[in-house]
Simulated scan of single mutants.
Amino acid sequence: MALPYCSPSPKVGRFQQAMESVYGDFCDIKSPKDWTPPPASGGHRGRYLWTDAFGVINLLTMHKEYNRTGGVHMQDDQYLTLARRLIETVHQVLGRTRDGRSPLPGATEHNPLGGGLRIGKTDEDGPDCDGQYHHYLTIWMFALNRMAVASGNMHYNDQAIQLARAIHPRFFVDRKTARPRMVWKMSMDLSRPLVSSEGNLDPIDGFVIFRLLQATAATTGDAHVLDEEIADYRRVMDRKGQHFVSKDPLDLGMTLWTAHWFAETEKWASSLVARCFEQLYDLFEIQRYLERGIRSRLAFREFGTSLGLQCESEQSGDRERATDFKNWADAIIVAWDPYMELSAPAAVTPADLRPITRVMYASALIPGAFCSGYFGPESTLKKGSGVV
């Protein structure tokens, strides 16, 4: 595996190594527009939606990191082209039935995401079978949105909105009432719930991501395209009241990441960040979690923690808290760095080397495109009034 010959920093080199361990050696790609991503994302037919969403976002980070140094590692738009090819491949595989013969029900030639996107689970049946997760779909919408922002091609945000409109009503129960609720997992064809319980983060994920999509759409004159859907999420948040803050590292990290988009402007988000800080302080400073042996920890869950900590630390007006966040994020990376080397020692478990772990390690090294403002000032986000 070749190291980038003009890597802006050793951290970017490690970032690229992690990505290449899943997607192959980028230096060997002669024609990016013809690249076929290897079927190595850890899912059915080689694609897994969460892993590939991180893959797309990381490729956008690589595009920005290499181009802003002034050096030429590849053609200026090569990583954008690779991101485009990964997006197309995911849609071709996970937007179709498992046998690949038909689009998912609801999809059409003009609306290829009208049937949603499968998770990519390896099993067709059973307790951990394939289906559709709301939080996987929203992270894919975010990837499409960031592709639109990074490339200037609004087609990708349009696709994200098509996906949002297609899947949104399927995850809601009593949607038109004052107290709607959501379901955690739907069948592959979105016809029935597979897990009827409500995901802890799903309403907030939808509330934030749909607003990002709408803000981007507003730049081309469609400022209200998802008003109805955003209002649905707001009612679920109102029904649930104060958001439950988990003690799980990944859940804490993704909560921080979601909230960081509004933490400096909206009370619900700033309050959520403050409560995450309390849990993290207890976990890291009182329980001394970061001093535990690696064998009792899960790498990819902690990389999600590090990602959220860094995104929020960049936005926070509370400098003391931001410093704590950054120090904890760095401590996670330092703990796992030796085990993420390609010649990983025997102490690391197979789960630590899964594709999902590798792409999340890259994101934790350089959150980049996950962070608000990374590609410049964000489109104006309408204040979500009424949410506390």
Score class of each variant (00 low, 15 high):
Asp248Met: 07
Asp248Val: 06
Asp248Ile: 05
Leu250Glu: 01
Leu252Asp: 04
Gly253Ser: 01
Leu256His: 01
Leu256Thr: 01
Trp261His: 00
Phe262Leu: 15
Glu266His: 14
Lys267Thr: 06
Trp268Glu: 01
Ala269Leu: 01
Ala269Thr: 04
Ser271Ile: 11
Leu272Val: 15
Val273Pro: 07
Cys276Met: 11
Glu278Ile: 15
Leu280Trp: 03
Asp282His: 15
Asp282Cys: 15
Glu285Cys: 09
Gln287Ser: 09
Tyr289Asn: 14
Leu290Gly: 11
Leu290Met: 15
Leu298Val: 11
Ala299Thr: 06
Arg301His: 03
Leu307Val: 06
Gly308Pro: 02
Gln310Met: 05
Cys311Met: 04
Cys311Asp: 05
Glu312Ser: 14
Glu314Leu: 06
Gln315Ser: 07
Ser316Glu: 04
Asp318Tyr: 14
Glu320Asp: 06
Glu320His: 02
Ala322His: 06
Thr323Asn: 13
Asn327Val: 10
Trp328Met: 07
Val334Asn: 05
Ala335Tyr: 03
Asp337Thr: 11
Asp337Lys: 09
Pro338Asn: 07
Tyr339Asn: 07
Tyr339Val: 05
Met340Glu: 14
Glu341Phe: 10
Glu341Ile: 11
Ala344Arg: 00
Pro345Arg: 03
Ala347Asp: 09
Ala347His: 08
Ala347Met: 08
Val348Gly: 02
Arg354Ala: 11
Arg354Leu: 14
Pro355Thr: 04
Pro355Phe: 07
Pro355Tyr: 05
Ile356Asp: 05
Thr357Arg: 08
Thr357Ala: 14
Arg358Asp: 09
Tyr361Arg: 00
Ile366His: 01
Pro367Cys: 13
Gly368Trp: 00
Gly368Leu: 02
Phe370Gly: 04
Phe370Pro: 04
Cys371Val: 12
Gly373Pro: 02
Phe375Ile: 02
Gly376Thr: 13
Pro377Cys: 08
Pro377Met: 09
